[in-house]
């Protein structure tokens, strides 16, 4: 009995997919090029009650909504004292180095799964890790020595998780953060914060590029990259994930100089590991072989075949060279990362 993997493909179909995806150039089932993304529908600033919000719909039907809410919170007394120690040397009014990662709260809601299931917890960890990796965001949550913003990022997956939903959630979060606005601060120094109630005067959490300084900070994006044979494929669909030899989640964020840098990489356990192997012809009783092959003989025949003749779940890890190549493709000038960022920037609010 084949193990339940949620992949509705037979060994023969997997083998076919794997062969066409490892060809040079790879032939993807939907005819895309290796770095091409699937078309998507995106809107930003859709909710009146949130500080920032976005909705993204992938063409396979998966849909996510992200709402971001900010609340003013009193910084704990212990933290104030810790700040007080160093008050002598830094009296600057910016929050540089004073932000804390716990001021950012990421919650993922996937229908049909509990909040403490593996998938939402793992996805949440990956997204918040990328967001916390550059200190710029948490420092912007600092108001003064006694108060800070608490940012709640609520990610709602509206559809069942058909393909691995990480890129969808990451792009939606990016878009929502890009459009998040905080009310303008009127009070000065360490007094109780007072804000401008004019929403038109609010400031973007990630400042928009202006004429004097075109380079700007942006939230990170997390891209899903798979390798099949010698090829590196971006934005894998469900079928492509089913035969992936390795799956990497690469988070990249633009630096102050305008170039992209990688802030986090994680390898994801590919679902292909759980697929059942095909039976080589020599021992397949249906094709006339002797039906008396023992378990040992079957294993030996499969090992000899090495996945060339029939499908066999991929083994082993991912090489350093491949990881380096993936990173290069993401961060290179005019590479995939920049293309995605430019695409999301063009989304109308």
């Amino acid at each position: 009995m084949a193990p339940y993997t949620n992949i509705p493909l037979s060994p023969a179909e997997l083998s076919y997919l794997q062969t066409s995806l490892s060809a040079t150039p790879p032939i993807r089932p939907d005819g895309r090029s290796p770095t091409q993304f699937r078309p998507l529908v995106a809107e930003a600033d859709i909710l009146p009650s949130a500080n920032g919000s976005a909705r993204v719909c992938f063409s396979d039907g998966t849909e996510a909504v992200v709402g971001i809410k900010a609340e003013v919170e009193r910084t704990g007394r212990a933290d104030v004292f810790r700040e007080g120690e160093s008050e002598g040397e830094d009296v600057n009014a910016t929050g540089e180095g004073k932000g804390r990662n716990e001021w950012l709260e990421v919650a993922i809601d996937v229908p049909g799964l509990r909040d403490d299931d593996a998938l939402p917890v793992f996805l949440g960890a990956m997204l918040s890790e990328a967001l916390g990796a550059d200190g710029a965001l948490r420092d912007r949550l600092w108001i003064n020595a006694r108060f800070h913003w608490r940012l709640y990022v609520d990610i709602l997956l509206l559809s069942p998780p058909l393909s691995y939903p990480l890129p969808l959630l990451s792009l939606t979060t990016h878009l929502a953060l890009l459009n998040t606005r905080l009310p303008a601060l009127l009070s000065q120094g360490d007094e109780d914060p007072l804000f401008n109630d004019d929403w038109d005067a609010s400031t973007h959490l990630y400042p928009r590029p202006s004429k004097p300084s075109p380079a700007t900070q942006k939230p990170p994006i997390t891209l899903l990259v798979t390798t099949t044979g010698p090829n590196i494929l971006f934005d894998p669909s469900r079928d492509e994930l089913a035969v992936a030899e390795s799956v990497l989640a690469v988070s990249a964020a633009p630096t102050a100089s305008g170039s992209l840098s990688v802030v986090a990489i994680r390898s994801v356990d590919p679902p292909s590991r759980l697929t059942a192997a095909g039976v080589p012809r020599e021992i397949n009783s249906a094709s006339g072989a002797t039906a008396t092959a023992s378990a040992g003989e079957v294993l030996a025949a499969r090992e000899k075949d090495e996945g060339r003749g029939v499908w066999r779940a991929p083994r082993g890890g991912v090489g350093r060279k491949v990881v380096a190549e993936v990173v290069k493709m993401v961060v290179a000038k005019g590479g995939v990362g920049e293309e995605v960022l430019a695409g999301l920037e063009g989304v109308e609010t």
């Binding site: 709402g67 609340e71 709640y152 609520d154």
Partner: peptide, 9 residues
């Protein structure tokens, strides 16, 4: 109910 749907989170 989405966490961000109301006035307070």
């Amino acid at each position: 109910f989405a966490g961000f749907s109301g006035m307070d989170r």
